[in-house]
Simulated assay, not measured.
Amino acid sequence: MDLFVCAGCGTELSVPVERVALPVEAHYGGGHRWMPPLMEPGTYAVDPDPWARAWLTWEEIGEAGAAALGVHAPVHTVPTGPRDGIVLAPGDTRGTRLLPERSGPSCLGVVAGDAPNLVCAGCGLGVGFREDDCGVWQTVRYGPEAVVRRSLGVPPPAVPVRPLPPIDPEGGWDMRWSAAAGAALARLLAASGGRALKLPGGLPTELFGRSVARLLPAGPPFLTVGLAGPGLPGGDADIVLVPADRRTGAPWRPAGDAVPVPLPGPVWAHLVGPGETSPTPVSGTLPAQVLRDDYPLPEHPGYGFLPDRATLRRTLSRMPEVRRPWLRALYDRI
Protein backbone atom coordinates (compact mmCIF):
# COMPACT_ATOMS: atom_id res chain seq x y z
CA MET A 1 0.00 0.00 0.00
CA ASP A 2 1.11 3.55 -0.75
CA LEU A 3 0.45 7.03 0.56
CA PHE A 4 0.84 10.28 -1.41
CA VAL A 5 2.18 13.44 0.23
CA CYS A 6 2.80 16.96 -0.99
CA ALA A 7 6.25 17.41 -2.54
CA GLY A 8 6.40 20.90 -1.07
CA CYS A 9 5.54 20.41 2.59
CA GLY A 10 4.81 16.72 3.20
CA THR A 11 1.08 17.13 3.89
CA GLU A 12 -0.72 13.81 3.41
CA LEU A 13 -2.81 13.96 0.23
CA SER A 14 -4.37 10.51 0.19
CA VAL A 15 -5.51 7.60 2.30
CA PRO A 16 -3.50 4.36 1.91
CA VAL A 17 -4.09 3.15 -1.65
CA GLU A 18 -3.12 0.17 -3.78
CA ARG A 19 -1.74 0.55 -7.29
CA VAL A 20 -3.80 -1.15 -10.00
CA ALA A 21 -3.92 -0.97 -13.78
CA LEU A 22 -5.58 2.07 -15.34
CA PRO A 23 -9.15 1.02 -16.28
CA VAL A 24 -9.70 0.64 -20.02
CA GLU A 25 -12.63 3.03 -19.79
CA ALA A 26 -10.45 5.86 -18.44
CA HIS A 27 -10.76 7.90 -21.66
CA TYR A 28 -14.41 7.02 -22.34
CA GLY A 29 -16.69 10.01 -22.82
CA GLY A 30 -20.18 9.59 -21.43
CA GLY A 31 -22.04 12.42 -23.15
CA HIS A 32 -24.49 14.55 -21.18
CA ARG A 33 -24.95 12.27 -18.19
CA TRP A 34 -23.61 11.79 -14.69
CA MET A 35 -20.51 9.59 -14.39
CA PRO A 36 -19.37 7.75 -11.23
CA PRO A 37 -15.78 7.64 -9.91
CA LEU A 38 -13.39 5.95 -12.31
CA MET A 39 -11.26 4.26 -9.65
CA GLU A 40 -12.42 1.76 -7.06
CA PRO A 41 -12.08 2.98 -3.44
CA GLY A 42 -8.62 2.34 -2.05
CA THR A 43 -6.88 2.16 -5.43
CA TYR A 44 -4.86 4.39 -7.72
CA ALA A 45 -3.41 4.06 -11.21
CA VAL A 46 -0.71 5.77 -13.24
CA ASP A 47 -1.73 7.01 -16.69
CA PRO A 48 1.32 6.70 -18.96
CA ASP A 49 -0.21 8.80 -21.75
CA PRO A 50 0.07 12.58 -22.05
CA TRP A 51 -3.09 14.14 -20.68
CA ALA A 52 -5.01 17.35 -21.27
CA ARG A 53 -3.74 20.91 -21.37
CA ALA A 54 -1.71 21.34 -24.57
CA TRP A 55 -3.50 19.73 -27.55
CA LEU A 56 -2.08 19.75 -31.08
CA THR A 57 -3.84 18.75 -34.27
CA TRP A 58 -2.43 15.90 -36.33
CA GLU A 59 -1.21 18.42 -38.91
CA GLU A 60 0.55 20.50 -36.23
CA ILE A 61 2.35 17.64 -34.51
CA GLY A 62 3.14 15.53 -37.58
CA GLU A 63 3.45 11.76 -37.88
CA ALA A 64 6.88 11.55 -36.21
CA GLY A 65 5.86 13.79 -33.30
CA ALA A 66 2.69 11.79 -32.72
CA ALA A 67 4.57 8.49 -32.84
CA ALA A 68 6.93 9.77 -30.16
CA LEU A 69 3.86 10.18 -27.95
CA GLY A 70 2.58 6.69 -28.77
CA VAL A 71 0.02 7.62 -31.45
CA HIS A 72 0.54 5.75 -34.73
CA ALA A 73 -2.47 6.73 -36.85
CA PRO A 74 -4.18 10.06 -37.58
CA VAL A 75 -6.41 11.45 -34.83
CA HIS A 76 -8.11 14.81 -34.57
CA THR A 77 -5.93 16.09 -31.71
CA VAL A 78 -3.04 14.71 -29.70
CA PRO A 79 -2.59 15.64 -26.01
CA THR A 80 0.94 16.77 -25.21
CA GLY A 81 0.55 17.44 -21.50
CA PRO A 82 2.41 15.70 -18.70
CA ARG A 83 2.65 11.92 -18.54
CA ASP A 84 2.36 9.54 -15.58
CA GLY A 85 -0.45 11.33 -13.78
CA ILE A 86 -1.62 9.60 -10.59
CA VAL A 87 -5.34 8.88 -10.85
CA LEU A 88 -7.46 8.40 -7.70
CA ALA A 89 -11.08 8.44 -6.64
CA PRO A 90 -11.91 11.87 -5.18
CA GLY A 91 -13.01 10.24 -1.92
CA ASP A 92 -9.52 8.84 -1.35
CA THR A 93 -7.83 12.25 -1.37
CA ARG A 94 -7.01 14.34 1.69
CA GLY A 95 -5.38 17.66 2.51
CA THR A 96 -6.37 19.64 -0.61
CA ARG A 97 -8.42 22.72 -1.43
CA LEU A 98 -10.51 22.99 -4.60
CA LEU A 99 -10.28 26.22 -6.62
CA PRO A 100 -13.36 26.02 -8.86
CA GLU A 101 -12.47 29.31 -10.56
CA ARG A 102 -9.62 27.43 -12.25
CA SER A 103 -12.00 25.01 -13.97
CA GLY A 104 -11.89 24.81 -17.72
CA PRO A 105 -15.08 25.22 -19.81
CA SER A 106 -17.63 22.94 -18.19
CA CYS A 107 -21.33 22.20 -17.92
CA LEU A 108 -22.47 20.96 -14.51
CA GLY A 109 -19.20 20.52 -12.62
CA VAL A 110 -15.49 21.22 -12.88
CA VAL A 111 -12.91 20.03 -15.38
CA ALA A 112 -9.20 20.51 -15.86
CA GLY A 113 -8.10 23.94 -16.98
CA ASP A 114 -4.72 25.53 -17.63
CA ALA A 115 -3.67 25.56 -13.96
CA PRO A 116 -4.20 22.96 -11.22
CA ASN A 117 -7.58 23.40 -9.54
CA LEU A 118 -6.45 21.36 -6.52
CA VAL A 119 -3.85 22.87 -4.20
CA CYS A 120 -2.22 21.53 -1.08
CA ALA A 121 -4.02 22.75 2.04
CA GLY A 122 -0.68 22.98 3.82
CA CYS A 123 1.42 25.13 1.50
CA GLY A 124 -0.77 26.10 -1.47
CA LEU A 125 1.22 24.14 -4.05
CA GLY A 126 -0.82 23.21 -7.12
CA VAL A 127 -0.91 19.41 -6.91
CA GLY A 128 -3.43 18.31 -9.51
CA PHE A 129 -6.84 18.41 -11.11
CA ARG A 130 -10.31 17.44 -9.97
CA GLU A 131 -12.96 16.56 -12.57
CA ASP A 132 -16.61 15.77 -11.95
CA ASP A 133 -18.50 17.31 -14.86
CA CYS A 134 -21.17 15.48 -16.82
CA GLY A 135 -19.72 13.04 -19.34
CA VAL A 136 -16.38 12.60 -17.52
CA TRP A 137 -15.42 10.16 -14.81
CA GLN A 138 -15.06 11.62 -11.34
CA THR A 139 -11.30 11.65 -10.79
CA VAL A 140 -8.43 13.39 -9.12
CA ARG A 141 -5.15 13.47 -11.04
CA TYR A 142 -2.05 14.38 -9.09
CA GLY A 143 0.95 15.62 -11.04
CA PRO A 144 3.92 13.25 -10.58
CA GLU A 145 6.19 16.22 -9.88
CA ALA A 146 3.87 17.65 -7.21
CA VAL A 147 3.49 14.59 -4.97
CA VAL A 148 5.74 11.97 -3.40
CA ARG A 149 4.72 8.33 -3.10
CA ARG A 150 5.53 6.72 0.22
CA SER A 151 5.42 2.95 0.44
CA LEU A 152 3.78 1.83 3.67
CA GLY A 153 5.35 -1.61 3.55
CA VAL A 154 1.92 -3.22 3.97
CA PRO A 155 0.67 -5.71 1.37
CA PRO A 156 -2.67 -4.84 -0.23
CA PRO A 157 -5.68 -6.89 0.80
CA ALA A 158 -6.81 -9.77 -1.40
CA VAL A 159 -9.71 -8.60 -3.55
CA PRO A 160 -11.93 -11.20 -5.22
CA VAL A 161 -13.06 -10.56 -8.78
CA ARG A 162 -16.76 -9.77 -8.79
CA PRO A 163 -18.60 -10.28 -12.10
CA LEU A 164 -19.87 -7.04 -13.60
CA PRO A 165 -23.30 -7.43 -15.23
CA PRO A 166 -23.59 -5.86 -18.69
CA ILE A 167 -26.78 -3.98 -17.80
CA ASP A 168 -26.52 -0.65 -16.00
CA PRO A 169 -28.97 0.61 -13.33
CA GLU A 170 -30.99 2.45 -16.00
CA GLY A 171 -31.56 -0.76 -17.97
CA GLY A 172 -29.11 -0.03 -20.82
CA TRP A 173 -25.75 -1.51 -21.74
CA ASP A 174 -23.16 -0.63 -19.10
CA MET A 175 -20.68 1.95 -20.42
CA ARG A 176 -17.78 0.02 -18.88
CA TRP A 177 -18.75 -2.94 -21.05
CA SER A 178 -18.91 -0.66 -24.11
CA ALA A 179 -15.41 0.66 -23.45
CA ALA A 180 -14.01 -2.81 -22.63
CA ALA A 181 -15.48 -4.21 -25.83
CA GLY A 182 -14.07 -1.32 -27.86
CA ALA A 183 -10.54 -1.96 -26.57
CA ALA A 184 -10.87 -5.73 -27.01
CA LEU A 185 -12.28 -5.36 -30.54
CA ALA A 186 -9.18 -3.39 -31.56
CA ARG A 187 -6.98 -6.29 -30.46
CA LEU A 188 -9.29 -8.87 -32.05
CA LEU A 189 -9.01 -7.05 -35.37
CA ALA A 190 -5.23 -6.87 -35.13
CA ALA A 191 -4.99 -10.55 -34.19
CA SER A 192 -7.22 -11.55 -37.10
CA GLY A 193 -4.69 -10.47 -39.71
CA GLY A 194 -7.66 -9.35 -41.78
CA ARG A 195 -9.22 -12.83 -41.86
CA ALA A 196 -12.71 -13.91 -40.84
CA LEU A 197 -13.40 -14.66 -37.19
CA LYS A 198 -15.74 -17.30 -35.75
CA LEU A 199 -16.97 -16.12 -32.37
CA PRO A 200 -18.29 -18.32 -29.57
CA GLY A 201 -22.06 -18.25 -29.18
CA GLY A 202 -23.92 -16.25 -26.58
CA LEU A 203 -22.79 -12.94 -25.15
CA PRO A 204 -19.39 -12.79 -26.98
CA THR A 205 -21.22 -12.89 -30.31
CA GLU A 206 -23.60 -10.20 -29.09
CA LEU A 207 -20.64 -8.02 -28.07
CA PHE A 208 -18.54 -8.36 -31.20
CA GLY A 209 -20.65 -10.06 -33.87
CA ARG A 210 -22.06 -7.02 -35.67
CA SER A 211 -18.73 -5.20 -35.69
CA VAL A 212 -16.79 -8.24 -36.88
CA ALA A 213 -19.33 -8.84 -39.68
CA ARG A 214 -19.02 -5.23 -40.79
CA LEU A 215 -15.24 -4.91 -40.61
CA LEU A 216 -13.87 -8.34 -41.57
CA PRO A 217 -14.60 -10.62 -44.52
CA ALA A 218 -17.05 -13.49 -44.23
CA GLY A 219 -15.71 -17.04 -43.95
CA PRO A 220 -14.90 -19.82 -44.14
CA PRO A 221 -12.06 -20.21 -43.54
CA PHE A 222 -12.15 -18.75 -40.05
CA LEU A 223 -9.87 -18.02 -37.18
CA THR A 224 -11.70 -19.24 -34.08
CA VAL A 225 -12.21 -17.13 -30.97
CA GLY A 226 -12.69 -18.72 -27.54
CA LEU A 227 -12.66 -17.96 -23.84
CA ALA A 228 -9.69 -18.86 -21.65
CA GLY A 229 -8.41 -18.06 -18.20
CA PRO A 230 -7.84 -19.62 -14.79
CA GLY A 231 -9.53 -23.02 -14.86
CA LEU A 232 -10.55 -22.55 -18.50
CA PRO A 233 -7.89 -23.78 -20.98
CA GLY A 234 -9.54 -22.37 -24.10
CA GLY A 235 -9.48 -25.51 -26.26
CA ASP A 236 -8.04 -25.16 -29.75
CA ALA A 237 -9.09 -21.57 -30.40
CA ASP A 238 -6.74 -19.34 -32.39
CA ILE A 239 -7.59 -16.23 -30.33
CA VAL A 240 -8.81 -16.27 -26.74
CA LEU A 241 -10.56 -13.66 -24.62
CA VAL A 242 -8.77 -13.69 -21.27
CA PRO A 243 -8.85 -11.68 -18.02
CA ALA A 244 -6.41 -8.82 -17.57
CA ASP A 245 -4.35 -8.76 -14.40
CA ARG A 246 -5.94 -6.37 -11.93
CA ARG A 247 -2.64 -4.81 -10.88
CA THR A 248 -0.65 -4.76 -14.12
CA GLY A 249 -3.27 -4.95 -16.87
CA ALA A 250 -1.27 -7.75 -18.52
CA PRO A 251 -3.36 -10.48 -20.19
CA TRP A 252 -3.56 -13.96 -18.69
CA ARG A 253 -1.26 -16.15 -20.77
CA PRO A 254 -2.73 -19.32 -22.30
CA ALA A 255 -0.60 -22.47 -22.39
CA GLY A 256 -0.65 -22.91 -26.19
CA ASP A 257 -0.12 -20.63 -29.15
CA ALA A 258 -3.47 -18.84 -28.99
CA VAL A 259 -3.29 -15.04 -29.11
CA PRO A 260 -4.67 -13.56 -25.85
CA VAL A 261 -7.03 -10.58 -26.00
CA PRO A 262 -7.54 -9.07 -22.52
CA LEU A 263 -10.80 -8.03 -20.95
CA PRO A 264 -11.23 -6.41 -17.53
CA GLY A 265 -11.52 -9.13 -14.91
CA PRO A 266 -15.12 -8.32 -13.88
CA VAL A 267 -16.29 -8.36 -17.53
CA TRP A 268 -14.50 -11.64 -18.25
CA ALA A 269 -15.86 -13.17 -15.05
CA HIS A 270 -19.41 -12.45 -16.16
CA LEU A 271 -18.76 -13.93 -19.61
CA VAL A 272 -17.55 -17.25 -18.22
CA GLY A 273 -20.00 -17.54 -15.31
CA PRO A 274 -22.48 -14.81 -14.47
CA GLY A 275 -23.58 -16.30 -11.16
CA GLU A 276 -25.29 -13.93 -8.74
CA THR A 277 -25.16 -10.38 -10.13
CA SER A 278 -27.87 -8.48 -8.28
CA PRO A 279 -27.07 -4.74 -8.44
CA THR A 280 -28.81 -4.06 -5.09
CA PRO A 281 -26.77 -5.68 -2.30
CA VAL A 282 -28.45 -6.51 0.99
CA SER A 283 -27.06 -6.97 4.47
CA GLY A 284 -26.36 -10.42 5.84
CA THR A 285 -25.85 -13.57 3.79
CA LEU A 286 -28.07 -15.92 1.85
CA PRO A 287 -28.11 -19.70 2.27
CA ALA A 288 -26.01 -21.68 -0.19
CA GLN A 289 -27.59 -22.15 -3.63
CA VAL A 290 -30.24 -19.46 -2.96
CA LEU A 291 -30.47 -16.64 -5.49
CA ARG A 292 -32.43 -13.43 -5.18
CA ASP A 293 -35.46 -13.08 -7.44
CA ASP A 294 -36.11 -9.35 -7.14
CA TYR A 295 -33.79 -8.04 -9.84
CA PRO A 296 -34.99 -4.58 -10.85
CA LEU A 297 -33.24 -4.63 -14.23
CA PRO A 298 -34.42 -6.11 -17.53
CA GLU A 299 -32.67 -9.23 -18.75
CA HIS A 300 -31.70 -7.45 -21.96
CA PRO A 301 -31.79 -3.83 -23.21
CA GLY A 302 -34.19 -2.98 -25.97
CA TYR A 303 -31.37 -2.23 -28.43
CA GLY A 304 -28.32 -4.07 -29.74
CA PHE A 305 -24.82 -3.78 -28.33
CA LEU A 306 -22.03 -1.93 -30.10
CA PRO A 307 -18.48 -1.50 -28.77
CA ASP A 308 -17.57 2.10 -28.06
CA ARG A 309 -16.18 3.45 -31.31
CA ALA A 310 -14.05 6.17 -29.67
CA THR A 311 -12.33 3.56 -27.47
CA LEU A 312 -11.87 1.30 -30.50
CA ARG A 313 -10.22 4.05 -32.51
CA ARG A 314 -8.13 5.27 -29.61
CA THR A 315 -6.84 1.77 -28.89
CA LEU A 316 -6.05 1.09 -32.55
CA SER A 317 -4.29 4.43 -32.96
CA ARG A 318 -1.95 3.53 -30.10
CA MET A 319 -1.06 0.07 -31.42
CA PRO A 320 2.04 -0.08 -33.65
CA GLU A 321 0.25 -2.78 -35.68
CA VAL A 322 -2.03 -0.09 -37.11
CA ARG A 323 0.84 0.80 -39.46
CA ARG A 324 0.17 -2.40 -41.40
CA PRO A 325 -1.58 -1.35 -44.64
CA TRP A 326 -4.64 -3.60 -44.21
CA LEU A 327 -5.23 -2.50 -40.60
CA ARG A 328 -4.61 1.15 -41.41
CA ALA A 329 -7.21 0.91 -44.19
CA LEU A 330 -9.65 -0.64 -41.72
CA TYR A 331 -8.87 2.07 -39.14
CA ASP A 332 -9.67 4.74 -41.74
CA ARG A 333 -13.06 3.08 -42.37
CA ILE A 334 -14.16 3.19 -38.72
Rank of each mutant, 00 (worst) to 15 (best):
G91L: 01
C120F: 03
G124N: 04
G104N: 07
W55C: 11
H76D: 15
W55H: 15
A68V: 12
D84C: 10
V159G: 07
W55N: 13
P116G: 01
P105G: 12
W55Q: 14
G81R: 00
G95L: 05
C123F: 09
P116Q: 05
V127M: 06
L152Y: 02
T77A: 15
D133L: 06
R83I: 12
L152I: 01
V147E: 00
P155L: 10
P82N: 13
Y142E: 00
T96I: 13
P79Q: 05
A52I: 04
D114C: 10
G95T: 04
V127H: 07
G113W: 04
V71S: 02
L152V: 08
H76A: 14
W137S: 10
R130H: 14
T77N: 11
P90D: 05
R97H: 13
A64E: 15
G70T: 05
A158H: 15
T43W: 06
P90Y: 00
E131H: 14
V78A: 00
G153I: 05
E59L: 11
R149W: 10
G113T: 09
G153C: 09
A158Q: 14
V136W: 09
G109D: 02
C134S: 14
W55E: 13
A64L: 12
G143P: 02
A54N: 14
G128N: 02
V75C: 12
R130N: 06
A54Y: 12
D92Q: 06
P144N: 02
P163E: 05
R130Y: 11
N117Q: 06
L56V: 08
C123S: 02
R150M: 09
G95F: 04
